[in-house]
Amino acid sequence: MSIDQIASEALRLSPHDRAMLAQTIWESLDAPYLVAPELSDDEAIALAKQRDREIENGAVAPLSHTQLMSGLRDAD
């Protein structure tokens, strides 16, 4: 079953059941908010500033959330 199929089925659940499902899925992850970042804070800030400059000068084009999610789904 694809993510789109699962999402479609999940969205048919009541709000309470969707919340319970979301909590169950979240709790199944290995503490994603505790995973050590690959970059230090200073490195992350420098990278964010660099990416901002690239967008501002037209070197790259930002993606909308919809475009990003579509690309991620297509990558499977």
Rank of each mutant, 00 (worst) to 15 (best):
Q50T: 05
L39P: 01
D41T: 02
T24F: 08
P37W: 01
R18C: 08
I45A: 09
L68Q: 04
R18K: 15
I6Y: 12
L47K: 03
P15Q: 11
R53K: 09
E54N: 02
T66P: 00
L68V: 07
E38T: 03
E38P: 00
D17I: 00
P37N: 09
A7L: 15
S8P: 02
H16I: 09
L68P: 00
D74F: 00
S2N: 14
L34F: 05
S64H: 04
L39N: 06
E38S: 04
D41A: 06
D30A: 14
T24C: 07
L39W: 06
L72S: 02
S8G: 14
R12S: 13
I45L: 12
S2R: 11
M1Y: 13
A31K: 07
Q5G: 13
L29S: 11
L72P: 01
A31T: 10
R53Q: 13
E27A: 05
L68K: 01
E27D: 15
T24G: 09
H65Q: 14
P15L: 07
Q5Y: 10
S8T: 08
L11R: 15
R53M: 10
S28Q: 09
T66H: 05
D41G: 02
L39K: 07
D17K: 02
R12T: 12
E9N: 09
Q50K: 06
L68R: 03
D30E: 15
R18E: 08
E54A: 03
P62L: 02
D42N: 08
L21N: 02
H16T: 12
L11H: 14
S70M: 07
I45D: 13
A36S: 12
G58R: 00
L29T: 10
V60P: 01
D74L: 02
R51P: 00
A61H: 03
R73Y: 03
T66V: 10
E38G: 06
M1S: 14
E54C: 01
I45R: 08
W26L: 12
R53G: 05
M69Y: 07
I6P: 03
I6A: 15
Q23K: 14
A61C: 05
Q50L: 10
L63P: 00
S14C: 11
L13C: 13
E43L: 08
G71M: 04
A22F: 08
E27W: 01
E43R: 04
E27L: 13
A59N: 11
E43C: 08
A10P: 05
A44C: 05
Q50W: 01
I3L: 14
Q67N: 06
A36P: 09
I45V: 10
L39R: 08
Q67K: 04
N57C: 05
A10K: 01
A48Q: 07
P15W: 03
K49H: 06
A59I: 06
H65V: 15
A31P: 03
T66D: 14
I6Q: 13
L29N: 10
I3P: 01
D30K: 10
D30M: 10
P15R: 04
A10F: 10
I45K: 05
G58Q: 03
S28I: 02
L13T: 11
D41N: 04
S14N: 11
H16M: 11
D76A: 03
Q5F: 11
L13F: 15
A46N: 04
S70P: 00
A44K: 03
E9M: 13
I25Y: 06
L47A: 04
M1I: 14
R12K: 15
L34I: 03
A19N: 10
P32K: 05
A36M: 11
